[in-house]
Every structure is written in C-alpha cells, then in structure tokens.
Computed example of a mutant assay.
Amino acid sequence: MVGGGEGAFIGAVHRMAAALDGEFALVCGAFSSDVERNARSAAALGLDPARAYATLDALLAGEAALPEDERMEVLAIVTPNHLHAPMAIAALDAGFHVLSEKPMALNLAEAQVIGAAVARSGKLYGLAFTYSGYPLVEEARVRVARGDFGKIRLVQVEYSQGWLSRPIDQDGNKQAEWRTDPARAGLGGCLGDIGTHAFQLAEHVSGLAVGSLSAELTTHVPGRRLDDDVAALLRFEGGARGVLKASQIAAGDENGLRLRIHGEEGGLEWSQMEPNSLTLRWLDRPVEVIRAGGPGLDPSAVARLRTPAGHPEGYIEAFANLYIGFGRALRAGAATPPPPGTADWFPGIVDGLRTMAFVEAVIENSAGEAKWTALARIPNDRRTAGGE
C-alpha cells in the first residue's frame, strides 16, 4: 500500500476490504512521507520494519529484489489524486498489479498513459468505484440488461453530501484541504471526488454511454478554489436522457447517493444509505421491493452476498467485492476484468477513462458558451482493458 497511514480514512477502508475474504495480506507499504508517521503506521499494522519503505521508488525496488514467492503482487494506491497516475505507471512498469483509488488521474491524457502502461505490462488494473460492488446494484444492472423495463428512457443519479458546507478546507482539515487544492485534486473538486462515482454508477447500471452533456459547476463557499456543487444534463447514446447532481454543500446530508432508471414499462430506485433494498415501480402492477438475501435475485447478485436475508451488508462488504474479484482474476491469470454479469467483475481501465472524459467535458461545458459538449470517444465496453 502507498499512502493510507495513520489518520487516513480510505487506507483503513482498503485494508478492511482487502482482508475480509482472505484473498489478500498486507506485506509492505510506504504509508507517509513523514518518516516517523510511516514507521508508526507500519508498526501499528504489524509489518516487518524492513518493508516499511520511505518512498514508492524504494518500495518497488525493495520488493523486486525479493524472491518471487515473497514479494508483493498488488499495489494499492490510496494517496491524493495527483499521485495516482505516476504511481500506477511506475508500479505497472515494475511488473506489479495495481488497484487504485479514484479518480484515475488528474486528466484524460494522464489516464490514457496509464492505459498504455496496462497494455504493455499485461498486469491487472482496478479502480475503487465502491458503489458498483453492492449486491443490489448488480441486481439492478441485471434487470436493466435483460429488458425488464423495456427501452431505457431516463437515468437520474444524485450524490449529496454536506460536509464541505463550511470552509473547513481553510481551517486545517486535511481531508478537505487536499480535495479543494487544484494541484492535488485536479481540475474538479466535488466533480472529481463524488461526481465521478455518480457518473460511473449511472453508466454501469444502465449499460448506456453518455454521448454529450450540458453542465454547471458552482463554488458556493467563498475562497474555495474548486467546485463544491455540480449539475449536468446527460444525453445517452441511443436516445435516453439523464440528470446528474452532485454536491458537497448540501448541509445536513450525509452520503446520499441515489440512482433511478426508467424505461417504457417501469423503473427502479436504489439508495446507498438503504443499500439492501431495490425498489421496482411499474405502470400496470404494484410496487415491488427486492431485498438483499431474499428470493428472486440473479446469481451474480447472490455471489456478492455473505449473509442471509435480514443481516445488513454495507460499504465495507461492497468494497470487498471489488477486492475479491480482483484477487480471483489475478489468481486465474487474467489480464483484464471479467465482463459485467460475472460474479468477479470489478471496475477497470474503461471505467477510469470514461469518468475522466466526463470530468473534462463538464469543465469544458461549464466554462464555455456551447450548449452541449461531447465526451471524448472512449468505448463503453468494460470487457476491454487497454488504453483506447
């Protein structure tokens, strides 16, 4: 692991998710640029002090020098955004698989360089789009794909948080500080942090690709350097329309990720804060509520469950589904993620490239005078791995 030392939220989440199903063990890390914090982090995690490296370069060199059956296999990248691309490329070129935090990179050009590194290395690359790991998100995707609702007409996704309603990024909060710093977060604040989650979820479940969008970025908190509120109208290829709303200044909201998809005959609704229920609504029959662990689930959704009905599973378990899929693909010798619909699918290069194309299109449209802006042409085929 690189990043994720003491005091870091997402590093601990990755470690819990990776360990949940016994597919992974943490063997080494470069957890912090602060020497003492790095050492304390490694000691708290029970690691050999010799494998608590001061830098990523030292980690890659040190691990490569070990016998093959002792060295690390996968690098988990849990740093601020500006380090994702250089670290992923270095690890792939050194012969290691990579599972990275999102967004993939600072921009599409960087993301495409990662894609090229994946292609030439033949190594696996995964992205932590956690919410696509929930069992009932998979159930929703299956029902859309098999045509339960007829042709899809409308996709609505909302991701609403309130934690940045006050200027905590200017008051010493480290998590807020780097997320609102263009040098470390990239060109989008709320857009890159949670807007990418909303976009990836909408495309993944609907099976549709956004072709163009009309968007507005807003910064509500005075002195903040990046957006804290995003709104976009979406035009999907094939004729469906959509709305994406992401905000980190919705005071009082916690982690309100909500997806609704409607076709000719009915639609579905799923909320991350009530993840074990999927609501189906129909034109000509009563509303249905599908429950995690209950009857009627597709086998690919069942495969993502660990407990019987009525035993809630949540964020850590969804995250672990990405890790277990990655681990099984690695053990099978795969160079690409399995296709959607298989039990071990996980987000990869295509999800990363498309989310970066989304970020750039939103920024371009919001800053310009054009009514609609097309996304860069990235094939919406999650069976491919390489740098299209």
Rank of each mutant, 00 (worst) to 15 (best):
V157A: 13
L233N: 14
A52F: 09
K102I: 09
F24L: 06
P338W: 08
A116V: 08
L75Y: 07
E369H: 10
G314Y: 03
G327E: 02
L283R: 15
A17W: 05
F9H: 14
R328C: 00
G296K: 07
V243G: 01
A30G: 07
G29Q: 07
V157R: 12
M356G: 08
M72Y: 03
M16S: 09
G133D: 01
R179V: 15
L330K: 00
P80Q: 03
E177L: 08
D228G: 08
P135M: 10
R235T: 03
S300G: 03
G150M: 11
R225L: 15
T342V: 02
V243F: 13
D253G: 00
R291F: 09
R241D: 14
T336N: 02
L136K: 09
T373K: 12
Q112N: 06
E177P: 00
E110S: 13
W163K: 04
E73Q: 14
V302D: 01
S100L: 03
P182C: 09
G239R: 11
S160F: 04
G186S: 10
H82S: 14
K102P: 12
P347C: 06
V137I: 15
D284Y: 02
G296M: 04
A85G: 05
G133A: 07
D21N: 07
D34H: 10
Q161E: 13
R258N: 10
S165H: 09
G327A: 03
G150P: 12
L60C: 04
D34I: 09
G368N: 07
A334I: 01
E264W: 11
R260P: 00
F149A: 11
G266S: 05
S277Y: 13
I77K: 01
T219N: 03
L75K: 06
R241E: 15
G223R: 01
